[in-house]
């Protein structure tokens, strides 16, 4: 257990009429190298949780232990820690500022203290990861399409080669093909570098498809954590949190209402489902 939230509470605007407790007694652990999905409704505290992990907020009480770093309410000098954590915020294309694509992607590595050759190398590598053609290097990021701008912003974070990669709704606003492309990039990046990925989403399909561990949040608390099958099996928990099962699961469930021997709801891949259907069709059910 390399990352652990130990009884963490976070309160916004303490001592004002707008005081608001966003997180309450959070206890949760992530394994190094896992792909973790954090799911929950808007306002469930999932964004606050990842901002703590990113070292951008300090807990009001409790301790966040990440490897040998302990983060608590009076922690100082988190600059070094933050360098190990990459964060892709919602609509990350809104943070672009440099004159050229290459400079913008190089901003992170430059801040890490990489030399020119290393920056150059990392920029090229990150661009190829996100599928941006090398001739876009010297273009202004603001001339690109929305989908390309999103890729530039994500490349800027990948170029930092973070040990922990945090993604807050990375596919929001993209069309279907844009979403599929981005998810497959993230999957490959995670497999290749073995970094810990923490992916915040309210899309259950994404969570089921990618995650090894899911953290289910509601009302500032962690309601449940476990493998996707553990989370999506527990319907009452999901309903209390205002969430649904993935589309595949929903469809299998409606099919199961007609079948005497139900199909397993632990299937998330369409091809597996189809194999199962064909198998049953041959056998005669």
């Amino acid at each position: 257990m390399e990352i652990s939230f130990q009884d963490i509470t976070y309160t916004y605007s303490i001592g004002t009429p707008f005081e608001h407790r966003a997180l309450q007694a959070i206890q949760v652990q992530f394994n190094q190298g896992d792909y973790v999905a954090v799911i929950g409704k808007t306002g469930s505290g999932k964004s606050t949780l990842v901002q703590l992990l990113a070292g951008l907020l300090l807990p009001t009480s409790g301790v966040l232990q990440v490897w040998d770093t302990r983060i608590h309410s009076r922690s100082k000098k988190l600059g070094e820690y933050r360098k190990k954590v990459g964060v892709v915020f919602q609509y990350p294309e809104h943070q672009l500022f440099e004159e050229t694509v290459a400079k913008d992607i190089g901003f992170g590595p430059k801040n890490l203290g990489c030399d020119v050759a290393e920056i150059e190398h990392r920029v090229s590598e990150a661009m190829s990861w996100v599928g941006l053609s090398p001739d876009l290097r010297d273009r202004s990021p603001f001339e690109l399409s929305g989908g390309q701008m999103r890729r530039v912003a994500i490349a800027g974070v990948l170029a930092m080669r973070p040990d922990i990669l945090i993604l807050d709704e990375p596919t929001a606003g993209l069309d279907f093909r844009g979403q599929r492309d981005l998810l497959s990039i993230l999957k490959r990046f995670h497999q290749h570098f073995g970094c810990t990925v923490v992916h915040v989403t309210h899309n259950m399909n994404e969570a089921a498809e990618l995650a090894e561990q899911i953290v289910l949040m509601s009302d500032g608390k962690v309601i449940a954590t476990g493998r996707p099958v553990d989370i999506f099996r527990n319907l009452p928990n999901l309903q209390v949190s205002g969430l649904d099962v993935p589309d595949v699961t929903k469809w299998i469930m409606s099919l199961n209402q007609k079948l005497s021997t139900p199909i397993s709801t632990e299937i998330y891949e369409l091809s597996t489902l189809v194999d199962e259907l064909i198998h049953r069709g041959r056998r005669g059910s």
Binding site: L56, G79, R82, G86, V87, F89, Q95, F107, N111, M160
Partner: peptide, 16 residues
């Protein structure tokens, strides 16, 4: 809110 978000995003990219 936007300023806060952008500052955080750039901080996360190592801006000091």
């Amino acid at each position: 809110a936007e300023t806060d978000k952008i500052i955080k995003a750039q901080k996360a990219r190592g801006a000091d």
